[in-house]
Design a protein around this nucleic acid. Structure first.
Length: 425
RNA sequence: GUGGGCGUAGCUCAGCUGGUUAGAGCGCCUCGCUGUGGCCGAGGAGGUCACGGGUUCGAGUCCCGCCGUCCACCCCA
């Protein structure tokens, strides 16, 4: 058993019927993104490591110790994507699309961390990015899309946390002030952040340790240092959210883990999930990222949301998966004891007619084929034995107890039509 | 990177202070019922007790190691 091959630590196979929930999430997201004017982007799973080192920042936790970095046979250094935004910015630089450029994606993301509940080495994100505008309405629409998506998949017990990180006009001054404050109180910080305090003071802001919180609460607040442009921008985002009826909470300590963020940052947290893994999605504005990757100055805003976390949140909120769980959505199951080629042809024609049909294999007895049919969740059995074959007919019968309609004989030419009628299609 | 819990059948698990051929429920297969599933009954397949070493007359059980996995910290989705 121990020698059996298995999926790597922190990765998982998603099998039916569980994978129906994935289809549901991805399908819902794709539809909402389409309605928002976003087009699908499909990208490589690995990129030149510079995309991430320059993009999310070499000082960030993720770039420092969580990336899957490897060299290929040509000695090029790549990294499996730890997130979705930097690669989109890289694509923008490479292809020069006409702004505003709105794309959505569904992608795996890889981070070398110790796995635990809601955190995996390969997880999956649904997200969108808008490049080429710094209009606060874009921020609001991106946030609204996330909000509407969560609602559409049944979530209600969550909050939107919103903050502004300032921009390159006003943030440096704040960071200096903050660094000064932290250094004056360095003895009171948690050990973890003693070094961080001078290197990347912003990181300390969202530390959850009481001693750091104490120091931070007595320090400067970013909001007081925002320049007029940032203040106006943030106000416009909030106003637009209010206009859409989306409530939000200002959280001054919201500092996200990637260095490319400026101005708007946000995070959706589920109250149904406890522990540290309660963020179901997050994102923000990144007005220097494209430049950092070698492109012309281009603003951007986007968010990503973890599929696994969303599914956990749905379970935690007690959302029913009726209609997703057990059914493969089969219209009919064919029970055939003849193995006549005409049955193969019939099944093919029913599928061409848009019906979902399955059948048993391996010449099982009629009795055991019925068991397989029952297990398949199909609504209707199409029975073909020697008697039916002779008449070019099938016996149609309901498999569910909630319908006691008598079996009827139907000619092959009429099976598709009758099946559609019975199924209300 | 740090710290804990757990590895026994396909799945969920029980196996007392070490004691003969290792158990249950569910699932699977066959049959009762030659062409009718679900319910019921009978039977069956399926385990080097994660792996390696040690203690012992004897180890699923105790000790050491190792691997896997889950959970927590850090950080994130």
């Amino acid at each position: 058993m121990s020698k059996e091959l298995s999926s790597p630590n922190g990765t998982h196979d998603v099998l039916p019927p569980q994978s129906r929930r994935w289809e549901f999430l991805i399908g819902t997201f794709s539809e909402l993104a389409r309605r928002g004017g976003f087009g699908l982007i499909v990208q490589p799973l690995f990129e030149d490591v510079a995309v991430f080192n320059r993009g999310i920042g070499e000082g960030s936790e993720v770039a420092r110790k969580e990336m899957y970095v490897f060299t290929d046979r040509g000695d090029r250094t790549f990294a499996l994507r730890p997130e979705g935004t930097a690669p989109v910015a890289r694509a923008y630089v490479q292809h020069h699309p006409t702004p505003p450029w709105k794309v959505w994606y569904a992608t795996p993301a890889f981070r070398y961390e110790r796995p635990q509940a809601g955190r995996y080495r390969q997880h999956h994100q649904l997200g969108v990015e808008v490049l080429g505008t710094d209009d606060p309405l874009a921020d609001a629409e991106v946030i609204a899309l996330a909000h509407d998506f969560y609602t559409a998949i049944g979530l209600s017990n969550f909050s939107l946390l919103l903050n502004s990180m300032g921009d390159r006009e006003c943030r440096p001054a704040f960071v200096d002030t903050l660094r000064g404050h932290l250094q004056s109180r360095v003895a009171d910080l948690c050990p973890e952040h003693v070094a961080t305090a001078s290197e990347n003071p912003l990181r300390v802001i969202d530390c959850k340790k009481p001693q750091c919180r104490e120091v931070i609460s007595q320090g400067p607040v970013l909001d007081d240092h925002l320049c007029e442009a940032c203040r106006d921008h943030f106000g416009a985002v909030g106003d637009a959210l209010d206009a859409m009826g989306i409530s939000w909470i200002r959280q001054h300590t919201l500092v996200r883990g990637f260095d490319y963020y400026n101005r708007t940052t946000f995070e959706f947290v589920s109250h149904a999930l406890d522990g540290a893994q309660n963020a179901i999605g997050g994102g923000g504005r990144y007005d220097q990222l494209v430049e950092d990757l070698g492109g012309d100055p281009t603003s951007g805003i986007g968010f990503g949301s973890g599929i696994e976390r969303l599914l956990l949140a749905r379970v935690a909120e007690g959302i029913s998966d009726d209609g997703l769980d057990d059914v493969r959505g089969l219209d009919a199951f064919v029970i055939d004891t003849t193995r006549d080629v005409r049955v193969t042809s019939l099944i093919s024609s029913l599928r061409h007619a848009g019906l979902a049909i399955d059948r048993a294999y391996d010449s099982k007895s009629m009795r055991s084929q019925f068991k397989v049919a029952d297990r398949s969740g199909a609504a209707i059995a199409l029975i073909i034995g020697p008697t039916e074959l002779e008449k070019n007919a099938v016996t149609m019968r309901w498999l569910r107890n909630d319908n006691d309609m008598e079996p009827v004989s139907v000619a092959w030419d009429d099976v598709a039509r009758t099946l559609k009628r019975w199924r209300g299609k």
